[in-house]
Amino acid sequence: MSIPQITPLGDSGLLLLFDNPGEAAAAAGCLTRAKPDWLLDAVPAYAALTVVYEPYQLNRLLRSGRLRLPAEREQEGLLYAAAAAAVRQVLGSDILRSISEQKRVVEVPVVYGGDSGPDLDSCAARAGMRPEQFIEAHAEAVYTVAMIGFMPGFPYMTGLPERLAQPRRTTPRQRIPAGSVAVAGNQTGIYPFESPGGWQIIGRTSMQLFKFLADSPTRLQAGDTVRFVPVPAAQAGRDEVSGR
């Protein structure tokens, strides 16, 4: 894998563009594990990785002489060049290893339709299918978490079969229950918490997606592979919603 194109994102961020989402997620993991003191965040989203840095710490690293800058700089800005060089240095060291480590598969149990998925019937109608066919197609597909965003733990997943694609609701709902499995455009997602939102709700999972008081708060992270497993309403048990 080649080290990607790097551009500035303001004066405290870098935008790295990779060839595919897997590489962006792997690079994020690599930076997070290395934990350099200038790094605040590494946020993968689709094939892009946003790196948020602390200019003051980077300045200290630069002054320490432990960072080698390229002789010719394409962009103005010494600290920006230092940030880009520091990122390349970390990624150069073990990105290949982290790619092989990345693949996690998570199965998400879903009660489709009924009160759990009030938009299932209209989604199926738009797709020219019966609701059972829509469920089958949604659960057969294999999804990749492209990014976590919008709210803590909300996974944006790619891999929705084209024929299942849906418009957003013209009027967003005020209250979508925690655990709601939704589709919008060519993506599927899960609301970890009760929230307003405009996606079409097709089901609900009892899986707790985000725990505020845990060391690793999310069940899913960018780069994960996800499968949905249909379960009957009776087996879903009590709703364990995400805890604050």
Partner: peptide, 11 residues
Amino acid sequence: RPGWRSLGVTA
């Protein structure tokens, strides 16, 4: 709280 943005948590 930087460090959690990759999980959707605002800094």
